[in-house]
């Protein structure tokens, strides 16, 4: 008895706590429940909205109709196309800064000790409060939008990359070293793959922040693209139009998370997943 290795919590749990093994078709039943939840929510929303003025809370059917209103959709997609430009540029710049700087800070203790208070202080200030500065430095248009997206994404990503670089298991590095890996090989063949889960998490968080920054910038600097559509909709009390833009941005966010999920399953196939 005592020579047996003690089971991990999950294995122990499998013996005592789970009532029965999932029956055949559990996957289908789960998806059905999720779909039912969405459906019930939408019906509830439709019911509540029909009691209120559509100026206040539009029913989902109005929002859906907006998506099929070709003139509006064409405008919407054109605006999204433009908005994605400053999002992509800001996010790309944030990646270029956060990944190398994060790795350096995570691997060089004295550098981390020197920069950590500054990073903490900057992280504590809501990025949106820098908007007046961006206006002073970069004006009201494209450069300011890129700067805001960059600023919103970069520090959140930096913190994850630092954690990833610092938590590398030393055994892995020493194993690489004893097999005679050069510094370059150590960096590209051991450290980089070991950090990949963290880098992808950083991308996931950064992308969500960048999409958030994309619309924030269009609302807080000169209103353009999606921001202009929202301002116009709110001036005419067209809350269905507002909600359509919100849903579109949320869909873009979901798509981004999905794409990074694909990247994860492609790059991290070696890592055991639940």
């Amino acid at each position: 008895m005592s020579t047996l290795p003690s089971p991990k919590p999950a294995e122990r749990g499998a013996n005592v706590a789970v009532r029965s093994p999932p029956p055949f078709g559990a996957w289908g039943r789960d998806r059905a429940l999720q779909a039912a939840s969405l459906l019930v929510g939408l019906i509830l929303w439709e019911a509540i909205a029909s009691q209120l003025s559509t100026f206040v809370l539009p029913p989902p059917s109005n929002v859906l109709a907006k998506f099929f209103d070709l003139a509006f959709t064409a405008q919407l997609l054109a605006a999204l196309g433009n908005a994605l430009q400053h999002m992509a540029l800001g996010f790309g710049l944030a990646l270029l800064v956060a990944i190398p700087l994060g790795i350096l800070m995570g691997r060089i203790p004295w550098l981390n000790a020197m920069l950590d208070p500054v990073v903490t202080a900057l992280y504590a200030i809501p990025t949106i409060a820098f908007v007046p500065f961006f206006i002073i430095w970069f004006g009201l248009f494209f450069p300011s939008r890129v700067a805001l997206v960059f600023a919103m994404a970069v520090i959140d990503m930096l913190i994850v990359v630092i954690a990833g670089a610092r938590d590398l298991r030393p055994e892995m590095l020493s194993a690489g070293r004893s097999f005679g890996a050069t510094r370059l090989q150590l960096a590209t063949k051991v450290m980089f793959p070991a950090m990949m889960p963290f880098l992808l998490t950083a991308c996931r968080i950064g992308l969500a922040r960048a999409i958030n920054g994309m619309i924030t910038a269009e609302l807080f600097f000169a209103a353009v693209n999606l921001g202009a559509l929202m301002k116009m909709s709110s001036r005419t009390f067209d809350s269905a139009g507002l909600l359509t833009v919100i849903v579109l941005i949320a869909l873009v966010g979901l798509l981004g998370q999905y794409l990074i999920g694909l990247l994860e399953s492609r790059l991290l196939h070696w890592k055991l997943r639940k």
Partner: peptide, 26 residues
Amino acid sequence: DLAATPWVSMFVVTSVASLVPLFILL
């Protein structure tokens, strides 16, 4: 878990800034 997850994952990607104009109307 199953009933709430679709809603939570949808709301968590919804950018707060985009909700602000709607909330002003509401």
